[in-house]
Structure formats: structure tokens, C-alpha cells
């Protein structure tokens, strides 16, 4: 037993080290790189905490897409400061130079984490109320994986809102475009320098990645996986193809793109309303049909999540479509 404890402690120490580098490293590039490593090691930690679904999501979204986004932003910021060295740095606030303020903030943060640690240690005996209820209610939904059961059956409203969040986040990102550029194609994925290696990867990896994504979506019903993990993988492959220049980013005003983005949420809503009309209650599934309906919802969700995440990473639209 102590061997696994040592393994866990080792993992924890690596995590803490990477977190400290992320927080306190001076060059932003190092911090972001450390954060991506932190995300991957965190995925291992999730496996140790017996939450495999979360491990998949963390690896894909937590470190993959977020890391890529931040890396792109930091790189652009560095390019800008090199191109215009005399421009003053963008500061969101006056840097807190007053040592007393810094000490007090450090003390308060230490206080919060100390109280939190104390609370974590002194948590009373955990209730197993929910675990039992999920285990009993799961067969009714016909699903094997309890997490997917919670996500798509018991707390379906959360997942609906979550899919809608992505759509509105995309609208938010698009709203930052210039008025003249509305309707154009996002361009932030175009590589500064065309690279043959990437083209090779772009051709070799996506088929395998798409297969893995669909497998993940399909396996989600009974084993760890699901719409978000599969969707993220598909999005990754699409982004790889885009950045390798093998595919063109669709224009913002493209009607099919909009439909693809919102189809997941719309269908989820439609099936929910059908349940509401059918007397089973909103987001309820008729007795025998729940597994089939859930799979339909998951399929469309995977598709729209893949497209939405891809467009989110692609950023805001640029050149207007030549009319």
C-alpha cells in the first residue's frame, strides 16, 4: 500500500513544482509551457483519483486547447514587443509595488489556503447518499457509465447550459472583430512559416484521431468517454488540419457553420421539449427510449462541440469575404 502512496506523493510533488513554475516564472513562455506540462501530469493525478472521464477532459481541454491558446497569445505578445520595443507593456492595473501590500496579500492568500487545508483534513465522514442513488437510478437510463448518466440524464440542464455556454462564448469572441471584418474568416491559425513536417502530420494523424474521437464518443455510454472528450479530440484534429493548411477556416457568416455550431444545443433542447410535451417532464426521457435518445443527443453534441471548439481556437474573423 505504501508503494502507491509514494507514487502519489511523487506525482503531487511534480504537480506542485510545475504549479510554482507556472505561477512565479518570469518569462511568460516558460510559465505557459509549465502549465501545459502541469495539465498533462494532472491528467495522471485524475486517474489516481479514479476519475478517468475527468482525466480525459483535463488532458484534452485543460492542457491541450487552453495551452495552445495561451501559447499563441504569449507568442503574439512577444512578437509585438520585439517589433515595437519602445511601446509600454499593457498593464491591467498599476503593478503592486508597495511591499506592505504584497506582504498582506501573501498573508491573506496563505490564510485562505491554510483554512482550506485544515477543512480538507477535518472533513467529516463523507456521505455515500448520491453514489447509491446514482447506482440505483442508472439502469433506468440504460447507460453503463455513471458519469455520462449524471451528465446527460440526471443533471441534463447543466449539460444543456454547458453546450450553450460554448456557443455564446464563440459569439463573444466573434463580437471582438472589427466591424469591417465581419463575415470574414478567422486567421489566427495560419502558421507564420509553412512547414512540411506539419503537413505530413496533418495528413497522417487526423484519420487516426477522428477514429479515436468517435470511439471515445461511442464508448462514453458505458465506459469513460463521452461527447465532450470525443468532441475535443475531433476539434484537435480539425485544428491540426487547419493549421497545416490542409483545410480552410469557414467564414463567420457561413450559414452551415452556424447551424453546425448550434445544432447540438438545439437538438438537445428539442428532445427536452419533446419529453416536456410527452408528459415525461422537460429533459426527461420516455421509458424505453432514453439510451437511444441520449446517444442521438451525444452524437450531435460531439459534432457541434468539435466545430465550436475549433472555431473558438481559430479566433475572431478578419478579412471580409470579397463580395
Amino acid at each position: 500500500m505504501t508503494l502507491t502512496l509514494f507514487a502519489d506523493l511523487g506525482l503531487l510533488i511534480i504537480l506542485l513544482g510545475l504549479a510554482i513554475i507556472t505561477a512565479f516564472a518570469r518569462p511568460a513562455f516558460v510559465a505557459v509551457a509549465a502549465y501545459m506540462a502541469y495539465g498533462l501530469v494532472m491528467a495522471l493525478a485524475w486517474v489516481r483519483l479514479a476519475a478517468v472521464d475527468v482525466a480525459l477532459t483535463e488532458a484534452a481541454i485543460g492542457s491541450g486547447l487552453t495551452g495552445m491558446l495561451l501559447l499563441g497569445a504569449v507568442a503574439w505578445n512577444q512578437r509585438q514587443t520585439e517589433a515595437h520595443p519602445r511601446r509600454r507593456q499593457i498593464r491591467l492595473q498599476v503593478p503592486a509595488t508597495h511591499p506592505l501590500l504584497i506582504i498582506v496579500v501573501a498573508a491573506v492568500c496563505a490564510g485562505v489556503s491554510a483554512v482550506l487545508a485544515w477543512v480538507v483534513v477535518t472533513l467529516p465522514e463523507p456521505p455515500t447518499l448520491q453514489v447509491e442513488q446514482v447506482r440505483l437510478a442508472l439502469p433506468a437510463t440504460g447507460l453503463g457509465n455513471p458519469v455520462t448518466g449524471v451528465l446527460l440524464a440526471f443533471r441534463a440542464i447543466d449539460t444543456l447550459l454547458e453546450s450553450v455556454v460554448l456557443v455564446f462564448a464563440l459569439v463573444g469572441v466573434w463580437s471582438l472583430a472589427d466591424d469591417a471584418a465581419w463575415g470574414g474568416r478567422p486567421r489566427s491559425l495560419r502558421l507564420v512559416q509553412h512547414s512540411h513536417a506539419l503537413t505530413l502530420l496533418g495528413q497522417l494523424l487526423p484519420p487516426f484521431g477522428v477514429l479515436m474521437g468517435l470511439y471515445l464518443f461511442w464508448a462514453g455510454a458505458d465506459a469513460p468517454g463521452g461527447a465532450f472528450q470525443g468532441g475535443t479530440l475531433l476539434a484537435a484534429m480539425w485544428v491540426l488540419a487547419l493549421s497545416a493548411g490542409l483545410a480552410k477556416v469557414p467564414a463567420v457568416s457561413n450559414r452551415q457553420l452556424r447551424l453546425l455550431i448550434s445544432i447540438g444545443s438545439l437538438l438537445f433542447l428539442a428532445i427536452g421539449l419533446a419529453g416536456w410535451a410527452g408528459g415525461v417532464g422537460f429533459l426527461g426521457y420516455p421509458a424505453g427510449w432514453s439510451k437511444a435518445l441520449i446517444l442521438i443527443i451525444e452524437a450531435t453534441l460531439t459534432l457541434s462541440i468539435a466545430v465550436t471548439l475549433g472555431m473558438l481556437v481559430a479566433g475572431r474573423p478578419h478579412r471580409a469575404l470579397p463580395r
Binding site: Q193, S195, H196, A197, L200
Partner: peptide, 13 residues
């Protein structure tokens, strides 16, 4: 596959 591609790109850079 991943390490070779990355190796290539970093080399070019």
C-alpha cells in the same frame, strides 16, 4: 510520430 514532427519544426525554427 509526434516527437519527429515537433523535432522537425523546432529544427526549422
Amino acid at each position: 510520430l509526434a516527437s519527429t514532427t515537433v523535432g522537425q519544426m523546432v529544427g526549422e525554427a
